[in-house]
Amino acid sequence: MSSAVDTATAAVVKKPRKARGAMRRLVSDPLGALGLGLIVVTVLAALAAGLLPHDPVKLNPMVRFAAPGAEHWLGTDNLGRDLFTRMLYGARIALVISIGATVASLLVGLLFGVLAGFGRAGWTVSCFC
């Protein structure tokens, strides 16, 4: 009898290892590591956009269409705005929108799941399909 209890207890204790195992599998796969690295770099770059010396909306017609260089890493546009700074500020906006869309879809999916699970499944299916 005690061996059955020990086996059940051991199974419960091993569950946190699966979460660590999932991260280990993600990092050990080359494409998973590449994807995780790209996400981390994008998030860090978007968060560091405020540290850049150029204003993304300030016009500077004296440096219109400047080539990429040490001052402007990706050059400037037709109004003299730094393209690298504008790209990082755009990444910040895209990050906020993507997190908002993910949270909204999570909440809507949770609501529909609760309605389908605790309510009448036929009503949920007939209403939304």
Results as ranks from 00 to 15, higher is better:
residue 107 L to H: 03
residue 36 L to H: 04
residue 27 V to E: 05
residue 45 A to S: 11
residue 76 T to S: 01
residue 102 T to D: 01
residue 62 M to G: 07
residue 68 P to L: 09
residue 40 V to A: 15
residue 120 R to N: 15
residue 27 V to W: 11
residue 90 G to L: 02
residue 62 M to Y: 12
residue 89 Y to H: 15
residue 44 L to H: 03
residue 9 T to W: 09
residue 26 L to S: 00
residue 80 G to I: 06
residue 117 G to P: 01
residue 65 F to M: 12
residue 127 C to H: 14
residue 24 R to V: 10
residue 14 K to H: 03
residue 96 V to I: 15
residue 79 L to Q: 14
residue 28 S to L: 02
residue 25 R to Q: 05
residue 119 G to T: 13
residue 81 R to N: 04
residue 117 G to C: 00
residue 105 S to E: 12
residue 112 F to S: 02
residue 54 H to Y: 03
residue 98 S to G: 11
residue 2 S to Q: 08
residue 96 V to S: 06
residue 116 A to H: 10
residue 129 C to I: 08
residue 90 G to T: 07
residue 88 L to I: 09
residue 113 G to L: 10
residue 107 L to M: 10
residue 90 G to S: 09
residue 72 H to M: 00
residue 26 L to D: 07
residue 41 V to W: 04
residue 55 D to H: 07
residue 102 T to H: 03
residue 116 A to R: 12
residue 75 G to D: 03
residue 91 A to P: 02
residue 101 A to L: 15
residue 110 L to H: 00
residue 9 T to F: 13
residue 37 G to D: 01
residue 6 D to A: 12
residue 43 V to L: 08
residue 1 M to A: 12
residue 47 L to C: 02
residue 81 R to T: 01
residue 76 T to I: 02
residue 10 A to N: 15
residue 2 S to K: 09
residue 42 T to V: 11
residue 12 V to A: 11
residue 64 R to Y: 11
residue 88 L to A: 05
residue 60 N to W: 03
residue 115 L to W: 14
residue 36 L to K: 00
residue 8 A to Y: 13
residue 90 G to P: 05
residue 102 T to I: 12
residue 19 A to W: 10
residue 69 G to M: 03
residue 60 N to R: 14
residue 92 R to T: 08
residue 47 L to G: 04
residue 116 A to N: 11
residue 125 V to D: 02
residue 61 P to I: 06
residue 42 T to D: 00
residue 34 L to W: 08
residue 124 T to A: 11
residue 85 T to G: 01
residue 52 L to W: 05
residue 76 T to Q: 01
residue 122 G to V: 06
residue 112 F to Y: 13
residue 38 L to D: 08
residue 63 V to Y: 06
residue 25 R to K: 14
residue 77 D to A: 11
residue 8 A to K: 14
residue 117 G to N: 13
residue 48 A to H: 01
residue 72 H to D: 03
residue 82 D to V: 07
residue 66 A to L: 05
residue 87 M to E: 10
residue 29 D to A: 06
residue 90 G to H: 04
residue 70 A to G: 07
residue 18 K to L: 06
residue 73 W to T: 13
residue 46 A to P: 13
residue 32 G to L: 03
residue 63 V to R: 02
residue 16 P to H: 07
residue 71 E to N: 10
residue 87 M to S: 15
residue 50 G to L: 01
residue 67 A to K: 13
residue 122 G to T: 12
residue 102 T to K: 04
residue 19 A to D: 06
residue 116 A to L: 12
residue 117 G to W: 09
residue 34 L to R: 06
residue 54 H to V: 05
residue 20 R to S: 07
residue 33 A to T: 00
residue 78 N to W: 09
residue 40 V to P: 02
residue 94 A to P: 08
residue 79 L to C: 00
residue 29 D to E: 05
residue 14 K to E: 07
residue 24 R to I: 03
residue 69 G to C: 06
residue 55 D to V: 05
residue 8 A to S: 12
residue 31 L to N: 07
residue 32 G to W: 09
residue 45 A to Q: 00
residue 93 I to T: 14
residue 66 A to V: 01
residue 75 G to R: 01
residue 8 A to H: 12
residue 79 L to M: 12
residue 26 L to Y: 07
residue 85 T to F: 08
